[in-house]
Design a protein around this nucleic acid. Structure first.
Lengths: 211, 211
DNA sequence: ATCTGTGAACCGGTTCACAGCC
DNA sequence: GGCTGTGAACCGGTTCACAGAT
């Protein structure tokens, strides 16, 4: 089954997400069965890694045969929690926030943007696809009302920690931040931060030091 | 000095980038000296980790005193390769590409966007800040001419691998991809991929499995 | 006394290798 | 024969603990 007793490494979860993509590709090509080796080759890992990753959550394959593509897709979606929809709010309607609000990759996996907020009155009312930007003063009320599960932060670095505190005390437990600032949240709240400057700096390092 | 003999873990480089941010903050507050403990507290690590990270590249501190803020900033910038400017091109002028092209966080650290490209003729000529979108047919010529060092990919998943191949054979060695597709490149080329769907899926997992 | 620099111990994620099933 | 599932070995990043410098 898919309730691991042990703690699961983030890298494992990340790979599951990757496997899922390949499985969907295999499915769209009509392939009904895959081996751990095939999945490994697509994803740039090893077959043992694939088997180990899956074995944390149960036995999904058949020895001598491999994994059923359809079944494994379903199992991984269940493990990741993707069999249910995830309402998402975006906070900050600047360039990045506006782009994210209209990003199709979100919706395709069950993530629905249900609200976009900004503190700048000049931006509220602005249309982004089907949504219009709301004032950040509505945030607490809307969170209580619509119970979004994930907040995406696209606010300036200086405003980020204060906004984390706000959405956390409004009851949210998962935050994806694009703000260029390190953030802290209480136990029980998961924050993931994507820092584009850091990504570029890692590239600069690799260029500077030869590969 | 700052030419490590051993291989350096990516996590180390990522932390150096983080330390740099804090050091700049300390500097702007007029602080002249920091201990590994102070840096650790800001960055959510341990003092031993900070010292170990720095020691890969040399001895920058004074026993009993700590590190000189200014000196350490300089040293880390040198280690990361940030003492020189890094010309960057952005490929794909959709929502994400356009947002990135105007993202201020890039320029502040020596990364200069010198070109934005799209294959859609409707987009070429469009103004993004100081730049206007160019046709992707100019790509090879421009790369040969201006020698950008980093390519940021903001193209659809299906187009991503082909574009990687193009910029690699045009001579580029570092790519930051926002395309939702796993990419492969030959030895000697560094690719970093930011996949927003995966980030959300990791959050969905953590919400599903309780922290 | 304080804080750095670093070998040694530790820990956890990855890889190996093989038993078990088709 | 082919491929999964998994304990054991391995490896590398983190933490510990202490010697050395101020």
């Amino acid at each position: 089954m898919h309730s691991p007793t042990k703690h699961i490494a983030e890298s494992t979860v990340r790979r599951l997400s990757l496997y899922l993509r390949f499985l969907e590709e295999f499915e769209s090509r009509g392939q009904t069965t895959v081996s751990s080796g095939e999945l490994a080759r697509s994803g740039g890992t090893t077959s043992a890694q694939v088997r180990k990753d899956l074995s944390f959550f149960g036995s999904f394959g058949k020895r001598g045969l491999g994994y059923g593509v359809k079944d494994l897709i379903h199992s991984i979606r269940e493990i990741l929690g993707l069999e249910q929809p995830w309402p998402v709010i975006i906070i900050g309607a600047g360039k990045i926030g506006a782009a994210l609000a209209q990003y199709r990759g979100f919706t395709s996996r069950g993530f629905h943007v249900v609200g976009v907020y900004d503190r700048d009155p000049a931006k509220t009312g602005m249309n982004l696809g089907a949504l219009s930007v709301r004032s950040d003063t509505e945030l607490e009320r809307d969170i209580a009302l619509h119970k979004p599960r994930i907040a995406v932060l696209a606010v300036p670095g200086e405003a980020a920690q204060a906004m984390v505190d706000r959405v956390v005390s409004a009851g949210m437990h998962a935050i994806l931040s694009f703000a260029p600032a390190p953030l802290h949240a209480p136990q029980g709240v998961t924050i993931r931060a994507v820092n584009m400057a850091t990504e570029l700096e890692i590239l600069a390092y690799s260029l500077t030091h030869g590969v």
